[in-house]
Simulated assay, not measured.
Amino acid sequence: MSIIEAVRKYLQTCPLLKSGTLNVDFLPPEAATYSVDVVPVKPVLKAYMDGSSQRQFLFVLATRTYYGEFVRQQLDNLCFFEEFAEWLDKQNRTRSFPDLGDGRNARKLEVTTSGYVFAPDTDTARYQIQCRLSYFQKGER
C-alpha cells in the first residue's frame, strides 16, 4: 500500500470527515468536499548503513466550504480545523497511526500549520491544514 493510500484510509476514520468523500489531489467545486493532497518534500530525513531510514510525508487536508461575509460561517470553518488538530493530537498520544504496511512504522503524525483559508471565491473557499507523518522504513539489506 502506498503512503498516500494509508493516510487517506486513516483520515477516513476521523469523525469530522464522516459527512463527505475524501478525494486525493482533487477538491471538487462543491461545498462540503474534502481532499488529501501531497506536498513536495525531501522524504528521507536520515539514512542508515543498513538501508533503513527515518522519513517524512507531508500532506494537506483541504475542504471546500461556504464562505462569505458572515462571521459565524468563518468561525465554524476554522473551528473544524481546530477540532481536526485536536483529533490528530489525541491519535498521537494514544499512538494510533496509519498502517503503512510491511517494513514501515509510523512514529508521529502532526499538524504543521493551523487551518487557513487558501483560495476564497464568491460563496465558497478552499480551507486547508498542513500535516506531517514521520515514519521509519526498514532497509532492504
Rank of each mutant, 00 (worst) to 15 (best):
D102G: 12
K9I: 14
E30F: 02
I4K: 08
E5Q: 11
G103E: 10
P40Y: 06
D102C: 07
D99P: 04
Y67G: 01
D89S: 14
R132G: 07
Y10R: 04
N92A: 05
F59S: 00
R93A: 14
Q12R: 06
D99T: 03
D121H: 12
R126Q: 12
T122A: 14
S19I: 07
C131N: 11
Q56V: 02
S2H: 13
Q54L: 10
P98F: 06
E140K: 07
A62C: 03
K18F: 13
V117M: 13
S96A: 15
L58T: 02
T122N: 10
G139V: 11
R141N: 13
S53H: 00
N23A: 12
Q130E: 13
L22K: 02
D37P: 01
Y135M: 08
K108N: 15
P15L: 10
V38P: 03
L17T: 09
L100I: 10
V71F: 11
T13F: 10
M49G: 08
D123Y: 11
A119I: 12
T13W: 09
Y116R: 14
A47P: 01
K90F: 09
S114L: 15
T33I: 01
L22S: 02
A62I: 01
Y67S: 00
D37V: 01
N77Y: 08
G20Q: 03
E110V: 15
I3G: 06
R72H: 07
K18E: 11
S134Q: 14
Q91L: 09
F84P: 02
D37A: 01
F97L: 08
S134T: 15
Q137D: 05
L88G: 02
G68A: 00
T33G: 04
I129F: 02
F84L: 15
K138R: 11
Y116W: 13
P43R: 10
Q91T: 10
V117Q: 08
S134K: 14
V117D: 02
V117I: 15
F84K: 02
T113M: 13
T33P: 09
Y48L: 10
D89K: 06
F70L: 11
K90P: 00
D123T: 14
S35H: 00
K138I: 07
E83M: 03
T122W: 11
Q137Y: 01
Y10F: 13
T21R: 07
E110W: 15
R107Q: 14
R104C: 11
A6K: 07
Q12P: 00
V111S: 14
K18D: 06
V60K: 09
T124P: 09
F84D: 05
G20D: 03
L88K: 01
P28G: 09
E30N: 06
L11W: 03
R126Y: 05
N92L: 09
S19Q: 10
V36E: 01
D76G: 14
M49N: 07
V44M: 08
D89M: 10
L45S: 02
D102V: 15
A106E: 09
Y135D: 03
V117T: 12
L45D: 11
L27H: 03
V24T: 06
D50F: 07
R95N: 08
E69V: 08
K42W: 04
R141Q: 11
T65V: 13
L88P: 00
R95G: 06
